[in-house]
Amino acid sequence: MRTWGSVDDSGSDLANNEGETGIALKKSAESDENSSDSASDDSNVTESSDLGENGLPMVHQANPDPKSVDAKQKERDFRKKLNRDAREIVSESIHKGVKLIVHRPEYNPENKQEYIALSKELMPVVREIARKTLPLLEHEVSSKFARNHYYGTKFQAESVAYRDYKYFAKKLPPTESPSLVVGLRIDESASMAAFGRLEAAKRAVIAVYEFCQICKIPILIYGDTADVSKMEQMSLFAYADFNNADSHDRFRLMNIRARSNNRDGMALRILAEKLVAAPQETKLLISLSDGQPKAMDNYTGVYAAQDMQQTIAEYERKGIAFLAAAIGQDKDVIQQIYGNERFLDISDLNEFPAKLVRIIARYL
């Protein structure tokens, strides 16, 4: 159950009518213009298979050389672009008046150590699933033919009329990378702190991230929360973005937190639009949540559910496949919002990481 509150004219917090404690609003430590620079480089290369002998991601404990002024500026420019793009995406929706900030979290040595500890038991399972999946990708046979060649494996009788001797079609080779892109949306509402959900979410995110790196699948991983402050009514956290892929993104994932409320429809719309722009044929968006949407002032109940359903319907028409992984007490509500065909009931949190990776593998 979310804890949430509304604000009167004087800015004081009021508990909701269910008697729950409202979350105190506070000024965000970051903003679009003054959030601190990310500690990643600007490389577009993902070191997907940089695994050590024990199968864990190779981690260099020493910090890299300080980034150049140019690299820092590029990172700031990327963060500003994320903010501009996200605001543009929602500018014609019911969320157009919501004050939004997209953050690019930093990582530190503690994040690295936490990542190593959580990934230790996961990587053997991830590698095994990837081992079974990769041969299918390597031996994929294309069913598409390129027309109008002087030689090939398929004769096109209708081309004879052109008298240019280009009477054959050649089968196109399989693409080097799978034609799948994955988006993972993490609900960072306050209730994620309960019953081990936060650690389960982190473990699942690690498993998905490393599987996608091994299989060279582009991936977005964004967290979101609402009502951090009056000036930051919606917060997005860009942990991994295929438009600026960085091998250190795995460490950023450890910044996933239980924070405040949640405005699910807005997050879904932003990530879905980013996937629409990707060139891959199959576009999968997974929402990991422990409860129903609830944010100030009135984003809850039927109103919020309808917004989410309309968003899902709109983007399914644009080719996005949605899945909702429910790990909390509001599973029935999540199932009703997303529909049976898009709903994953995660009853055993220990099974969650492997189950989620296997589901993604089926889309390859």
Rank of each mutant, 00 (worst) to 15 (best):
M1W: 03
R2F: 10
R2P: 09
G5N: 12
S12V: 15
A15E: 07
N16R: 08
N17G: 01
E18F: 15
E18C: 12
G19E: 00
T21K: 10
T21W: 05
T21D: 07
T21P: 04
T21A: 07
I23R: 04
L25S: 00
K26L: 06
K27E: 11
D32Q: 10
S43V: 04
T46N: 07
S48L: 03
D50H: 00
P57N: 09
M58C: 15
H60F: 15
Q61L: 11
N63K: 15
K67C: 12
V69N: 10
V69L: 04
K72C: 06
Q73S: 11
K74D: 00
E75A: 06
R76E: 02
R76F: 11
K80H: 14
D85H: 05
A86Y: 06
V90G: 00
I94G: 01
K99F: 14
R104N: 13
P109V: 11
P109I: 13
N111D: 15
N111K: 11
Y115M: 13
E121Y: 09
L122Y: 06
L122E: 11
P124M: 08
E128Y: 06
R131A: 15
P135T: 11
H139W: 01
S143I: 12
A146W: 03
K154W: 02
F155N: 10
A157R: 03
E158D: 13
P174C: 09
L180C: 00
L180I: 08
V182T: 01
E188P: 07
S189Y: 05
S191R: 08
A193P: 07
R197D: 03
V205L: 12
C212N: 04
C215D: 00
I219M: 05
G223A: 03
D227L: 10
E232A: 04
E232T: 02
Q233W: 09
M234Q: 13
S235Y: 12
D241Q: 05
N244K: 01
A245I: 07
S247V: 01
F251V: 05
R252S: 09
L253W: 05
I256S: 08
S260K: 02
S260E: 12
N261A: 08
N262K: 09
D264C: 01
G265F: 05
I270A: 02
E273P: 02
E273K: 04
E281I: 00
T282L: 06
T282D: 07
K283H: 09
L284E: 09
S287N: 14
L288T: 10
P293G: 04
K294V: 12
M296R: 01
M296T: 13
G301T: 00
G301P: 03
V302N: 03
Q306A: 09
I312V: 02
K318N: 07
I320C: 11
I327L: 00
I327Y: 00
G328F: 06
Q329G: 02
Q336K: 07
L344R: 01
I346M: 13
D348I: 14
N350E: 13
E351C: 10
E351S: 12
F352L: 14
